[in-house]
């Protein structure tokens, strides 16, 4: 089977002011696969992930160099000419801690659509249900869509955030350590969900949990000090890494 690419990172450099956080990153992102970014704390994996939806543009003094090409349009989403809002319309994100809005469950999911100018009740109803089903939350909340999202448990809140991100049909879904604030049962559900979701959407996930990367991802990139040390199929990375540093990290000798 020919590999189909959803995005391509070419010579990406990223700077927080004068500090260079990412160095010469090259990485292919396969369509409808899960790509995991692993590495020790401070290696730049979250920084890298946040380049994909231009979150760095929210804060001053941040600078990108290089390209992230989004296929099939062949546009560079980090070029200064590209409007970050246009990028975020296509690339959604799920954060480390569940961060639902203090609104109803329904309004949380509908928000992305409202931002896009959708206000027809039938369209919203349908999309909300579809997204909640997609995030395997529908059965738990269908009778209380008007309840506050804060009434849900942590794991449910995170699945709500996934539904919220799904509602706008993103082309890439970014996960930034989505289970680090959750208990094992909730974590398992999210992991199953991620594996399920890759049938519909390309996924990039940052995780500090190597077992999680091994369980959910198809490809894994190991990062260290702002660089990609090794990138390969996940089973290769975890069984036969070609780089010594990668081997030491996954066997728990450092990091």
């Amino acid at each position: 089977m020919v590999k189909e690419l959803k995005a391509e990172v070419k010579k990406l450099n990223f700077y927080y002011g004068r500090v260079q956080a990412l160095k010469e990153i090259n990485l292919p992102i396969e369509r409808r696969k899960v790509s995991a970014l692993i590495g020790p704390s401070g290696c730049g994996k979250t920084t890298f992930l946040r380049c994909f939806n231009r979150m760095h543009d929210l804060y001053p003094h941040n600078r990108y160099e290089g390209e992230i090409i989004l296929h099939p349009d062949n546009v560079n989403i980090i070029s200064p000419q590209m409007d970050p809002i246009e990028v975020r319309m296509q690339i959604s994100m799920v954060f480390q801690k569940p961060n639902p809005f203090p609104k109803s469950i329904y309004e949380n999911v509908a928000y992305g659509l409202r931002v896009r100018g959708v206000s027809k009740r039938e369209v919203l109803d349908e999309k909300v249900e579809k997204s909640l089903r997609g995030a395997v939350l529908w059965d738990e909340v269908k009778d209380r869509l008007n309840h506050l999202a804060f009434d849900l448990s942590g794991g449910q809140q995170q699945r709500l955030c996934i539904a919220r991100a799904l509602a706008t049909n993103p082309r890439i879904l970014l996960f930034d350590e989505p289970t680090s604030a959750l208990d094992p049962t909730a974590t398992l559900k999210i992991e199953e969900l991620i594996v399920e979701l890759k049938n519909e959407v390309t996924i990039i996930i940052v995780t500090h949990n190597m077992q999680q990367a091994a369980r959910v991802s198809d490809y894994t990139a190991f990062m260290y000090l702002g660089e990609i040390v090794e990138y390969d199929k996940t089973d290769r990375i975890f069984t036969a890494p070609s780089n010594k540093l990668t081997e030491e990290y996954i066997t728990g000798r450092f990091g």
Binding site: N53, M55, L58, I85, E86, R88, M89, S92, M93, F95, N99, P100, F101, Y111, G112, V115, R116, C161, R164, A165, T168
Partner: peptide, 8 residues
Amino acid sequence: EASYALGA
């Protein structure tokens, strides 16, 4: 961030 990430 949640709001901006959805394209707001």
